[in-house]
């Protein structure tokens, strides 16, 4: 049996090749992104991405970048690529609307671009303000040249994300993975009185 050097730490999240039965899909997402070489996580704080955000903050080997608006994230991902690094943009569906013109940079420059979008304004949404942007997400992204994949169930997250990562970094495409409201669970609001 190989001896471990004294004081070495085991990093289970990064050494595990497959998801253990106990690993939930948000942790699978983080593990896959890290295994894929992502070193910059950019986000506007959001409940749907909370695991990725908190793990990126706790991970000494990555940059965790809190944005003031999602469009910064598009430019940041492109800048990271210029420097030879992989970055991912985590945003909510409403943030997609903020990225539109900045996606010109990703599209015209053919930058590899990966974003994970936590969805609102669809399955079971209780806040009517969310529908306008939520329902426009796919159309808007596709209009700007971004390929859109959806993950509806926990057991398909890994397959969809692996496909997206191949499309992004092997084929150099612009790709969005929608973490749907069915997957995330609709936010619970008190019934209107």
């Amino acid at each position: 049996m190989a001896k471990k050097p004294a004081g070495s730490k085991v990093a289970p999240a990064r050494t595990a090749k497959r998801a253990s039965a106990a690993e939930d899909w948000p942790n699978t997402v983080y593990r896959l992104l890290r295994e894929g070489g992502v070193t910059q996580f950019a986000y506007v704080p959001d409940a749907g991405h909370s695991v990725c955000i908190s793990r990126s903050l706790a991970d000494p080997d990555v940059q965790s970048v809190a944005l003031t608006t999602e469009e910064e994230g598009v430019a940041l991902v492109c800048g990271a690529h210029l420097g030879g690094a992989k970055a991912v943009l985590l945003m909510q569906s409403s943030g997609v609307g903020n990225t539109i013109n900045l996606l010109s940079l990703a599209e015209f420059g053919r930058f590899p671009f990966l974003t994970l979008v936590s969805m609102r304004g669809e399955f079971g949404e209780g806040n009517p303000w969310q529908y306008a942007m939520g329902q426009a997400v796919t159309k808007v992204l596709e209009a700007m040249g971004v390929q859109v994949l959806r993950a509806e169930k926990p057991e398909e997250v890994e397959e969809v994300l692996r496909a997206a990562m191949t499309m992004t970094w092997q084929s150099g495409m612009r790709v969005a993975v929608l973490l749907t409201q069915r997957l995330l669970g609709a936010k619970v609001f008190a019934p209107a009185t």
């Binding site: 690529h81 690094a85 013109n101």
Partner: peptide
């Protein structure tokens, strides 16, 4: 890298680049 569009991108692009190339 000379930007001809995507107004507002320059500083955030520089940030991503600076984080990716900390010794430059």
């Amino acid at each position: 890298y000379a930007l001809g569009g995507a107004m507002g991108a320059a500083c955030a692009m520089g940030l991503g680049l600076a984080l990716a190339q900390p010794t430059r």
